[in-house]
């Protein structure tokens, strides 16, 4: 670009460059109009001063933020515990679902019921039922902890979804790969382990990333059964100050994690697409 050695633009190239430039200008102008309108119009709403006071209070944000941040560490910890277990359990269930051997047929049924059940029930209900139900059996500490059973509910729900992601990924690998592996003498299990799964994982990585982003947010649902994580902490602070700004603080914390993760997922999707098109 701008290199003097380059040949002059052809008429067609010059025309297309003009079109592109015009498009960029239009996009800049319309964006400016839109955001200026938002900036000036919203404060004109009759309730804006009250909303500003109760949601966007800078002093309250400053005082509540350290407490929110330390509660958010629990969210991250729960996420870090759940994520690997979900990935493993999801794979195990997917493999059980794909079983063809008659003697292992009961496992296949278990997998199908598992997937149907945990995908059908809203995650918050699962959290209530398992999170309150199992400690209710009269287990002793630490086995009556809501952290433990609430996390299990999340793990089961997400593993059910993840199992279907794995399964569709496995089915998307062309059958010729299986033929090639078998013709070399690989057993069914070896074919899966060395040929199918590695290709599956790279293919479904973008989907896995999206599920992880979703999980990162759903960890906050555990607040309903006890753990003082960031949402519950924000609730406490809200009651303390009589102001909703702590919610905004909690939202900011989630954004700090999920937006970079979303961009990473987008990048990986684009990369996978590029690989497919190559």
């Amino acid at each position: 670009m701008g290199n003097k050695d380059q040949p002059p633009l052809t008429r067609r190239a010059a025309y297309e460059a003009g079109l592109r430039k015009r498009g960029i200008n239009i996009a800049l102008f319309s964006s400016a109009v839109f955001f200026l309108a938002v900036y000036f119009l919203i404060p004109l709403a009759p309730g804006w001063p009250a909303v500003k006071q109760s949601f966007f209070n800078w002093d309250i944000l400053q005082t509540s933020f350290p407490k929110l941040l330390s509660a958010f560490k629990l969210d991250l910890l729960l996420f870090a515990l759940c994520a690997p277990l979900i990935l493993i359990l999801g794979l195990v269930v997917a493999l059980m679902r794909n079983i063809t051997s008659p003697s292992l047929f009961p496992l296949k049924i278990v997998a199908i019921v598992f997937i149907d059940l945990f995908r059908a029930v809203p995650v918050i209900l699962t959290i209530y039922i398992i999170g309150f139900g199992i400690p209710g059996l009269g287990l002793f500490p630490p086995y009556n902890s809501p952290y433990l059973w609430g996390s299990l509910a999340l793990i089961l729900t997400y593993a059910a979804y993840m199992a279907e992601v794995y399964r569709s990924g496995i089915e998307s690998i062309h059958k010729s790969q299986v033929s090639a592996a078998q013709s070399l003498g690989f057993s069914k299990w070896q074919t899966l382990r060395y040929i199918i799964l590695p290709q599956t994982v790279s293919r479904i990585m973008p989907t896995i990333m999206n599920f992880m982003i979703s999980l990162q947010k759903d960890v906050a649902l555990l607040s309903f059964i006890g753990p003082i994580e960031v949402l519950r902490q924000a609730n406490v602070l809200k009651s303390l100050y009589g102001n909703f700004t702590p919610y905004i603080g909690a939202a900011i914390l989630f954004l700090c994690i999920t937006i970079p993760a979303t961009r990473l997922a987008d990048y990986m999707i684009a990369k996978e697409q590029k690989r497919k098109d190559a």
């Binding site: 033929s179 070399l184 590695p198």
Partner: peptide, 13 residues
Amino acid sequence: MGMVFQSYNLFPH
């Protein structure tokens, strides 16, 4: 007994 296929079927990964 080895086998070679029309579409090569190399392991792409």
